[in-house]
Amino acid sequence: MIIKINGKYYKIKKIEKNPNGKYTITTENGKKYEFKNVKIFSEEELK
C-alpha cells in the first residue's frame, strides 16, 4: 500500500488506529506519521 504525504509517495509498513480516532502510519523507512483522514493508494492505482 502507498500513502501520499506532502506530495511524496511512501510505502506503508503498518497502520494503527488510535483511540483518539487518528491513524498512525509507519512507512517502510521507519518514520511515523499521525493523521485524522487518510487516503491509501494501491500500487495499481498509481500506474
Rank of each mutant, 00 (worst) to 15 (best):
E28D: 08
Y10Q: 08
G30E: 04
T26Y: 10
K32R: 13
T26K: 02
P19V: 12
F41K: 03
P19G: 09
I3C: 09
I40R: 02
G30T: 00
N6Q: 11
L46Q: 06
E16K: 04
N37T: 13
N20H: 06
I15N: 00
K17D: 02
K14G: 11
N20Y: 07
I2N: 04
K13C: 05
V38S: 03
V38P: 15
Y10K: 03
K32N: 07
E45I: 03
Y10H: 11
Y10F: 12
I2D: 02
Y9L: 10
K36N: 11
K31T: 11
K13R: 12
K39G: 11
N18T: 10
E28R: 07
L46H: 08
M1F: 13
S42T: 12
P19W: 07
L46P: 06
T27R: 01
G7K: 07
N29W: 08
Y9W: 15
E34Y: 14
L46T: 06
F35W: 05
E28Y: 14
V38R: 03
V38T: 03
Y9S: 07
E34C: 09
Y10I: 12
E28F: 14
N6A: 13
I12L: 04
K11P: 07
G7P: 00
V38K: 04
L46D: 08
Y10V: 13
M1W: 14
K47I: 15
Y9K: 04
K8N: 08
K31N: 11
K31D: 10
F41M: 10
E45M: 03
K4T: 06
I15M: 07
I2S: 12
E43C: 13
K14Y: 12
K36Y: 11
K22M: 14
T27W: 04
G30Q: 01
L46M: 10
K14R: 13
E16Y: 07
S42G: 06
E16V: 11
N6F: 12
Y33W: 13
K31S: 09
N18F: 08
T24I: 13
I25M: 02
N37W: 15
Y23D: 01
E43M: 02
E16R: 05
E34N: 05
K8L: 10
E28N: 11
I12H: 00
Y9F: 11
M1P: 08
Y9I: 06
K11R: 11
Y33V: 06
K8V: 13
T26F: 10
E44I: 02
K32Y: 08
K4V: 15
N20M: 06
N37L: 08
F41S: 06
P19I: 13
I25L: 05
K22A: 11
L46I: 13
N29Q: 11
S42D: 11
I40P: 07
K4E: 13
S42V: 06
N18W: 08
K17P: 06
K11M: 06
V38E: 04
K14A: 12
I15C: 12
E44N: 04
K17Q: 10
K31Y: 12
N18V: 04
K39I: 15
S42F: 13
T26L: 09
G7A: 03
E45N: 04
K11C: 06
N6W: 13
K4P: 03
I25R: 00
E44A: 05
V38D: 07
K8G: 05
G30W: 01
I25G: 00
I15E: 00
I2E: 04
Y23E: 01
N29I: 05
E44L: 04
K14S: 14
G21H: 02
K4L: 15
S42R: 04
K17V: 12
K4Q: 14
T24H: 04
F41G: 05
N29L: 07
G7T: 04
E34P: 03
N20G: 07
L46K: 03
E34Q: 11
K11W: 07
V38G: 07
N37H: 14
K36F: 12
K11A: 09
K32M: 12
Y23Q: 02
T24P: 00
Y23A: 01
E44F: 02
L46S: 05
K31V: 12
E45F: 03
N6C: 15
N29G: 13
I5F: 06
K31L: 10
N6V: 04
P19R: 10
I3A: 09
K36Q: 11
G7I: 02
G7N: 11
I5N: 01
I25D: 00
T27A: 09
F35V: 15
T26D: 01
G30R: 01
K11L: 08
K22T: 14
S42Q: 14
N29V: 03
I3K: 01
I2R: 07
N37A: 08
I40Q: 05
K13S: 13
K13Q: 14
I2K: 05
K47M: 14
E16S: 10
K31C: 15
I25V: 14
G21I: 00
N20T: 09
N37G: 05
K14I: 12
E16F: 10
K13E: 08
M1R: 06
S42K: 06
E43T: 02
K47N: 15
Y33A: 02
F35N: 02
K17Y: 10
T24A: 07
K11H: 09
K17H: 10
Y9D: 05
K17S: 07
K32F: 05
I5G: 01
K31A: 12
N37I: 11
N6P: 00
I40V: 07
L46A: 05
T27C: 14
G7W: 01
K31Q: 13
Y9M: 08
K22F: 12
G30C: 04
I40E: 10
S42N: 07
N20D: 11
S42W: 14
K8R: 13
T27E: 01
V38L: 10
S42E: 10
N37F: 15
N29T: 12
K22H: 14
Y10A: 06
P19Y: 07
E16W: 10
G21M: 02
G21R: 02
E16M: 07
I12E: 00
I40F: 09
F35P: 02
I3S: 00
K32P: 01
K47L: 15
K14H: 12
K32A: 08
E16D: 08
K14N: 12
I15L: 11
Y23L: 09
K13L: 14
K31R: 11
E34I: 14
N18A: 09
Y33N: 01
T26M: 07
G7V: 01
G21A: 01
K11N: 06
E28H: 12
E34S: 13
E16H: 07
Y23P: 00
E34D: 07
K4I: 14
K47V: 15
K4R: 11
F35Y: 10
I12N: 00
K4A: 12
E16Q: 08
G7C: 05
Y23G: 00
I12G: 00
K22D: 09
K36I: 10
Y23N: 01
E43I: 03
